[in-house]
Write a protein that binds this DNA or RNA. Sequence first.
DNA 1: TCTGGGGTCCTAGGACCC
DNA 2: TCTGGGGTCCTAGGACCC
Length: 432
Amino acid sequence: MTVALLDCNSFYASCEKVFRPDLVERPVVVLSNNDGCIVAMSREARNLGIPRGIPLFKARSFLKEKNIEVFSSNYVLYADLSRRVMDLLSSRVPVMEVYSIDEAFLILDHLPSPPLPLCKELRDDIHRSIGIPSSVGVAPTKVLAKIAGDIAKKRSDGIFALGDVDVTGRGRPPAFGHEKDIDLVLGEIPVEDVWGIASGLARRLQERGIRTALDLKKVDDAWARGRITLTGLRIVWELRSIPSIVMEEVAPPKKGIMSSRSFGHPVTDLEDLLEAAGDYTARAAAKLRSQESVCRLIDVWLTTNRFREGDRQYSAGTVVSLEEPTDYLPDLVAAARKGLKSIYKDGYRYKKVAVFLSGIEGTKGRQGDLFRNPDPRKSALMAAADRMAARYGPGTLSCTIMRPSNDWQMRREMLSPPYTTCWDQLPQARTG
DNA sequence: TCTGGGGTCCTAGGACCC
DNA sequence: TCTGGGGTCCTAGGACCC
């Protein structure tokens, strides 16, 4: 197997630069929801030594001092550019897996063009037609392709092949094709940089002298099965060039759907919390319907701000069972409100409410309730709501009363315009 | 003043069944 | 005195990913 990992460089920051040519070589950072932390950085910003995940208020003076451009997250823009990248890839490579908003695995076997020229072409086309830079790692397995991708990011050509793959279409690969060459590379990779090995596992491995990807490749199978589970053993096999992690060409339906937000300001009033919970339920329910599912359970929880040590702390959650599996928003909102009322306590400064739909099953082929007939008006109403959302934006039709002064809304003080998804925000080109 | 929001998979342990 | 041996299903919690 020959698999490539194509990964967009500093994706959110690159998206912000697409319509701002004045920022090309400038440091750019993108914030999390609610303008809380720095979650993405352009290469220039990373080189200035800003740690990922640092709260904005701690970085503010540094950002100003270094004249760094700061953006609130604009997920509508990122999702739209991501879709364009994935569409371009799938038009050239029939077997692929969209792994995240900015990454895809591509199967390069049995294609007319050999892997390396094809990867170069894909990379150039994505840059030219969408404006997003990317890197590509090519290898016999997904885990090795991830490692190759990390190396590719540091190279000026943005491409790196690792392992016994016929990258040129002319027989043997030019370099790093033999087992000893792969091992030379793996010996330089710290074990915690391997995909699937995070700090906790890495610590346990290091205690046993397993410090590099090469050490991990050489562990005993039975030991790995017992100590790092089957998931870990699969990683070990993939390091040995044995494909063990399946390609998911079609995204499986979600088993749980979450919607939660931190508030722009602390919230004390139950009515505000109910309003927020209704809004989040609507977002989650729209996702549920878009994958043609219904849910049986709805979890609601709320919490105070754990970082404010002076505040009295409280957090609680509850699960509400629906009478029958449903995707009908008014029923879901009623259940969410009931759950929230049961856990709400007066006198706390709340920071966040979350809603989680679970017990999910497909709408098609579902066993009907013998004693109940589904009400056709309910599905017609939801279909109409979804059409209105598609046309006029999410939240156009709601079953929660939204008061104008809802100060639970998140902060987005440095938001870029929806350049690609809103007619009156299209960037204008000037001539002459 | 201000600290994100999604997801997945795995294991252990309890309840319950024959 | 001595108190089986499997299953399944569910939940909680941990670890990992972007």
